[in-house]
Every structure is written in structure tokens, then in C-alpha cells.
Amino acid sequence: MRPDRLPLAARALVWAVALLAILVMGLPMANVLAVSLSSPGSSESPGLVLFPAEPSLEGYAFVWGTIDLWRPFLNTLYVSAAGTVLHAILAALGGYVLAQPELPGRKALTSFVLLTMTIPAELTLVSIYAVNKQFHLVNRYAGLILNGAASGFSILLMRGYFSAIPRSLSEAARIDGCPEPGIFWRIFLRLAKPGLATVATLELIRRWNNIAMTVTLVSDMAKTTLPVVLRWLLFEMSTASGAAYVYANAKMAAVVISALPLVALYAFAQRFFVAGALAGSVKG
């Protein structure tokens, strides 16, 4: 036996934990998917369902067509996409300015940004509501897009990417007479693309799944987002008087529709998800 292998009992434990983790994570997801693809009647049969007994798309048709889930879906898509673009632009601008080593007042500006990170937005929801009311942003998409348009975290992340770009590149461009916006746009932004993708990915996840800010700013069901409508569908629709009974297949179809876009994105852009996760754990 090689000296750097674990004893047999420990190796068995490691594999048991791995298997258990896959089952605990995977079985519920498979269960949800199978139930969502079942007919209304068969979706409520007991036990562990991993394959639909009576395959059917009725659940999807019901939530999409009858309950009009397309509306919150499009709302979420619009608010998340627009908000993410805005957030990425402000992160790039702020990060670029803070990355200029000889800019007078850079330290003060950095503290101004850092200070916003000490108070999580969740703690100021009531005053955020009051302020947005004052700005006429309550119950409007613009409110959901504007709130969260910048974050100290993303700005500092972009500052890190910009600082890593060799200064000789911008100096050379400046000597060649390239204007400042051109230097920002053509040199820095292009080289910091992975950083921008990481910031955008993180922000998209945050916005797609956001609940606290949405329920604070929007009470109009026609303008709200998927997580809020999904909650209503899961817990309140069946108990509302006069509403139709919602079968498990429909509930789970709505769950799948809510979760699938990010899972699909993850499949294509995994490295940005990982980079984003790590960015949050760099000690600073």
C-alpha cells in the first residue's frame, strides 16, 4: 500500500459521503423534474417519482397559459438583464477610476465606496421604500433596475482587474495621442473582459433570484418577478377562495421554469460562476 493513501475505512467513508451528497442533491431535483412532466392525476401519487408514470406537458401549459407565468418570466428577464448591464457599466467605470494610482483623492473615493459595503441593503428596506416612494420608483420596473445599479463589491472586483493591466500599455497609447475614453474603451475594457463577465454573472444570479427588494418595491402582481409569483403559486393560490386547485405537476413546472435559465447559463459559463464565487472569498 502506498503510504499516502487513506486507510480503507476512511476511503469507504469518503466515497459514502460523495454518494450521499449526490443523492441528497440529485434525487429531489430529479423528483421535481419528473413530477413536472407528469399528468395532473399521476403527479400526486406517493413515493419517490424519478420518471413520470403518465408523461404530460399539461403542467407547463397550465402555468404558462392559464396562470400567465410568461408575464413574471418576461418581467424578471427584462429587469435582470437591464439591471445587470447597468451594474456592469457602473462597476467598470468605478473600478477604472479607482485603479488610477496617481488620481488626487483616490483614497477618499475608495473609502466612499467601501463604506457602502458595511451596511447590507436588507437592513435598510424600510427607508429604501420611503426613498423610492419619494423618487416615484415604487411599483415601476425602473425602481427594480435602478436599485442595486452599483455595488462596492463589483467596483472593487473591477478595480482589481484593471490594476493588473500593465501601465505601459496605456502610457504608450497616450503618447500616440489616443484620447482618454479610447484608452478606457479599447485597452482596459477589452483586457478586463473576464472580470466584466464575472461581475455580470454574479449580478444576474442575484437579480434573477431577488426577493427582498422586489417585495419591498413592487406590490403590483402584474409587474412583479418570478420568485414572488412562484411563492404565491406554491402556497397561496390553492387556498385563495374560488381559485382552481393547483396540482403538483403545475407547481413543479413553475419551479423548473424558474430554475432552468440559470442552470442552463451555468452549463455554458461555468468558469465565470466559479470566478465569481472565489471573488467573494478573497480576504480583504
Partner: peptide
């Protein structure tokens, strides 16, 4: 193990009410 981190709390609640239902897994 990482996938559920992409889900909103409403999605997780949906998974939970299925799995912990009287007739669930």
C-alpha cells in the same frame, strides 16, 4: 452540490414542499 446555490428561495421552497409532503420522498 453547487447547483442549488443558483436557485431562488422560492424554488427551494418548491423542492421542499414536494420532498417533505405527506406522500413525498
Amino acid at each position: 452540490a453547487y447547483l442549488p446555490y443558483l436557485f431562488s428561495w422560492s424554488v427551494i421552497a418548491g423542492v421542499w414542499i414536494l420532498v417533505f409532503d405527506q406522500r413525498g420522498i
